[in-house]
Design a protein around this nucleic acid. Structure first.
Length: 456
RNA sequence: GUGGUUGUAGCUCAGUUGGUUAGAGCACUGGAUUGUGGUUCCAGGGGUCGUGGGUUCAAAUCCCAUCUACCACCCCA
């Protein structure tokens, strides 16, 4: 136990069964992305710190993994920074690269860098791990995969509609029951403006974002502590407390904040998206949630978040529109909208709800028992024909005890075993054993193929 | 980053007020069964009790530190 090896905090190994299930998720998501016409890109695991820093707020900067410079990494350290324990400056002195924190900022960097080769609107997807130096918890890891779809260079709200359809399609295929929550940043600014607290937008949004979790009283407490007046809070109450159907929420919002510029625009956008959606037969519940804010302060329009119904885990997918993300890299006025699927959390939800189809766990469909040199050679020929017919087959490599070979097949959950000994070699009728029922029968090669194919 | 809970065999866990050689179930290996797994029976291997220090004649057990996992906050996929 003492010197048992281990892996860093918040990281995980994935064993074959977990990989089979994870790949099921990744493949499903990727198929949907492709079906909607998105193209893949990849970016490096590490980016220059200058690309990453300052994009996620103070909290985000703290959660960035930084990479120690090669060579003499002390050469840029200034004595006074060391004396004063100026950690930020020391970190910059010894490190100029960091692990990516999400896929959106590297994508923005990519777009700016390759702007001359890209045809806009650019629809890309990206499935890669990201790293955050967060304290791990259930559903929270330090290394996890994001599956991003974004379209950049188009202001059309049809993109929002398309993303919602993608979300719906992915979770339908995965059989995960979800609620898609929708809001608009402009509605939030309209709210702030209508209570004369436009300058406190961030404080207001982060506070009411917690409504679900901590209840309305605590939200008010937090607002007061941030310097929002009691008058303003009283005015805010009817807005936060909206309930009912999307239509009735929209109507109330119009009355309450429709007079502000941003409020009017935001409501109109929400209404447009929902109207597009109406005839499209989206199966997941789509609901307006005027308390939905999400932390990232670069969203400017739509805000989207997906929750799995009946599982207490954070959001499993989220995103929104950002009008000027590439602006920070010197390419202004390019609007983008996208969402990110959290594969690891989707895995946890599906695990908890037993949603993985057991077919994904079958690797080898048929195993040949090895009786010895001559029998093995014969089995190999039969095996090749099966493989050429698209059947996943393997021959046990050692002519060991039959019990051991059967046990191997059993534990690998291989549904069929073929036995080829003296008798079978002579008659060319091979014994096929169904490992689930225990039934055996003697079949010719053609019958063998047919039988196994039928079970696929 | 703040506060709390935790750690004994590969896994899930017992372990008395601190007291000889730390146990069980499952898993693993071998046998009963040299052409039959998943059931049954028998036998066996495997732990310096997370790590480091301290208290004590004596520590898995008490104290401190540290690491891990989990929970709440913060934040988020």
């Amino acid at each position: 136990m003492a010197q048992k090896p281990s892996i860093p905090k918040g990281t995980r190994d994935f064993s074959p069964l977990e990989m089979a299930r994870r790949n099921f998720i990744f493949n499903t998501i990727q198929e949907v992305f492709k079906q909607f016409g998105y193209q893949p890109i990849e970016t490096p695991a590490m980016e220059n710190l200058s690309t990453l820093l300052g994009k996620y707020g103070e909290e985000g900067d703290r959660l960035l993994f930084k990479i120690l410079n090669s060579g003499d990494f002390t050469k840029n350290i200034k004595a006074e920074d060391y004396e004063a324990k100026n950690l930020n400056r020391l970190a910059l002195a010894v490190s100029e690269k960091g692990l990516r924190y999400d896929l959106t900022v590297p994508f923005a960097r990519y777009v700016v860098q390759h702007r001359n080769d890209i045809t806009f609107p650019f629809k890309r997807y990206q499935i890669q791990p990201v790293w955050r130096a967060d304290r791990p918890q259930k559903g929270r890891y330090r290394e996890f995969y994001q599956c991003d779809v974004d379209v950049i260079g188009s202001n059309s709200l049809l993109n929002e509609v398309e993303l919602i359809r993608i979300i719906d399609e992915v979770f339908n295929r995965l059989k995960v029951n979800v609620t898609i929550k929708l809001n608009n940043r402009k509605v939030l600014s309209g709210m702030a403006e209508s209570i004369d607290a436009a300058d406190k937008l961030i404080d207001i949004t982060t506070a009411i974002d917690k409504l679900d979790k901590i209840g309305i009283e605590k939200v008010y407490q937090e607002l007061l502590s941030k310097g929002i007046t009691q008058d303003s809070i009283d005015n805010l109450e009817p807005i936060i407390n909206l309930s009912g159907t999307n239509d009735s929420k929209l109507n109330c919002l119009k009355q309450l904040i429709g007079h502000t510029d941003d409020g009017e625009k935001g409501i109109a956008e929400l209404e447009t998206v929902l109207n597009y959606l109406k005839p499209l037969n989206v199966k997941s519940k789509v609901e307006i949630d005027q308390s939905l804010a999400r932390g990232l302060n670069y969203y400017t329009g739509a805000i989207i978040e997906v929750k799995a119904n009946g599982v207490s885990i954070g959001s499993i997918c989220g995103g929104g529109r950002y009008d000027n993300l590439t602006g920070i890299f010197g390419l202004p006025d390019v609007s983008g909208v996208g969402v990110s699927f959290g594969a690891d959390r989707i895995y946890d939800v599906m695990k908890e709800q037993n949603l993985f189809p057991k077919e994904v766990e079958t690797s080898t469909e048929v195993m040949f028992v090895n009786f010895g040199e001559r029998e093995g050679a014969h089995a190999l020929e039969v095996l090749v024909s099966l493989q050429q017919n698209g059947i996943r087959a393997e021959l046990y490599p050692d002519a060991g005890k039959m019990k051991k070979q059967m046990k191997y097949a059993n534990q690998r959950a291989i549904p069929f075993v073929v036995l080829i000994g003296e008798q079978e070699m002579e008659t060319k009728h091979y014994t096929l054993k169904n490992m689930l029922t225990g039934e055996q029968e003697k079949l010719t090669l053609d019958e063998l193929v047919k039988k196994i194919k039928k079970a696929q």
